[in-house]
Amino acid sequence: MIRRVTHVTIYVKNDDEALAFFTGKLGFQKKMDSSMGPGGPRWITVSPPGQSDFELTLLNPATWLKGEEASLASGQIGQQPMIILDSDDIDGDYRTLKAAGVTIDLGVRDLPWGRDLIFRDLYGNRYNLVQSKPG
């Protein structure tokens, strides 16, 4: 029986710049950065501080895949489905993201169920940061 989701993959163009964006601009923690052999791909995962049950995998298709499969996956960079993130201080997170130079598509807005904002990563993938109302 399927029990839980543990990883979601984000396709990236460059391992180092993706890792720097997620750790430096978003404040995520690096969970894993392992070479899969000499000159081979790297297994890189990150997650928000304190989250131990879920990780984003930063995967460079050019190093992991070959031929048409690599080309198809590379074409999905910046086109992946929106990921929803949880916040306990959306106004503070907005200021931090803006100061870090993160592209904000939609600033903080009030909604019936709470507040949210939408931003993009360095490749154009969209993220919805949400702060739910208490209760």
Rank of each mutant, 00 (worst) to 15 (best):
E55W: 01
T103H: 14
L122V: 04
K133N: 10
F119T: 07
R95E: 14
V8M: 00
N14A: 04
S132G: 08
G37V: 06
L129M: 12
M36A: 08
V46E: 01
P112Q: 10
R115L: 06
V46T: 07
G135P: 03
R120E: 13
G24P: 11
D93F: 03
E69Y: 11
V12Q: 05
I90C: 01
E17D: 14
D15F: 00
Y123K: 04
I118F: 10
P38F: 07
L58T: 07
R126W: 13
G24R: 12
S52I: 00
I2L: 09
Y123E: 02
I83Q: 01
D15W: 03
D53A: 06
D116E: 12
I83T: 06
L117R: 06
A20W: 06
T45K: 11
L85I: 05
G39Q: 04
W113I: 10
D88P: 00
D16I: 15
P41H: 04
Q131Y: 02
S74H: 07
I77P: 09
L85Q: 02
T23H: 14
G67F: 12
K133Y: 08
L85K: 02
S35G: 13
P38N: 15
Q131N: 06
V130D: 06
R3L: 02
S71W: 08
P49T: 04
G135V: 07
R126N: 14
D121G: 08
D91E: 15
M82D: 08
K13N: 00
H7A: 01
G92E: 04
F119H: 10
S74P: 12
S35A: 05
R95P: 06
G39Y: 01
P41W: 04
R109T: 05
M32A: 15
A100D: 11
D53Q: 06
E69P: 07
M1C: 11
H7N: 05
F22L: 07
T45G: 09
W113N: 11
R126T: 15
M32T: 11
N14L: 01
N125Y: 05
L129H: 00
D110N: 13
L97S: 08
Y11W: 05
V102F: 09
A99F: 00
R42K: 10
S71Q: 13
Q131H: 02
